Simulated assay, not measured.
Amino acid sequence: MERAIRFYKNAKQDWYADIPEWGGDIADLQMVEGADELLNWVAASGDECKLLMADKHFESSEILELVYTREENLGGGGDYMLESFRGEIKNHRVWLCGVTEYVFKQLPQRIYFKDLYNL
């Protein structure tokens, strides 16, 4: 499964995923617990970025590795580790909520991604 997803900052400078078909609460699309920091790195000083994301490897992709699946009472979704980003060691933990399962139809062991705005 492969999908391009746009991420944007709102007026409060909080990051959100732009998933038009999402039928749930907009708050579910807010990027928190490390995902917001990752998007700051991707977008540099910008307020928007677009990531090609996949559960299969593709050329020039960064990798998020699933390290822990959260119980629903702990927010669901999974904790991922970003070992490196653009060649720099990060060891950065990122929580991706249940919307990840909605997008991928599962919680992938690895999520491969790259910035489509700055190729």
Rank of each mutant, 00 (worst) to 15 (best):
Y117N: 00
Y112H: 00
V67P: 01
E101R: 15
G76A: 08
F113V: 02
L74E: 15
S84N: 13
V94N: 02
L82Y: 04
K105C: 11
L116V: 00
K105M: 14
F104M: 08
V94D: 03
L64N: 03
L74P: 01
S61F: 01
L107F: 08
P108Q: 05
E71T: 13
S61Q: 01
L66W: 01
E88D: 10
E101V: 10
C97Y: 08
L107R: 05
E101T: 12
L107S: 07
R86H: 12
S61E: 00
R110F: 09
F85C: 05
Q109R: 13
E83Q: 13
H92P: 03
F85S: 00
Q109N: 15
D115P: 00
T69S: 12
Y102N: 03
W95H: 14
I63Y: 02
Y80D: 11
L82Q: 02
E71G: 09
I89C: 04
Y102I: 07
V67A: 08
G98L: 07
G98W: 09
V67G: 07
E88L: 12
Y68A: 12
V99T: 08
P108L: 08
K105Y: 09
E101M: 13
N73T: 12
V94F: 04
N73R: 14
Q109L: 15
M81Y: 04
R110V: 04
T69P: 06
Y117S: 01
P108C: 06
N73H: 14
L64P: 05
Y80Q: 09
H92R: 06
E62C: 03
E71C: 11
F113P: 05
C97D: 14
E72N: 11
W95T: 06
G75K: 02
Y102K: 08
R70I: 09
C97S: 15
G98H: 11
N91Q: 10
V103W: 01
H92N: 06
G75M: 07
Y112P: 02
G75C: 13
P108A: 03
S84C: 08
I111W: 02
L107T: 04
S84V: 12
E88T: 10
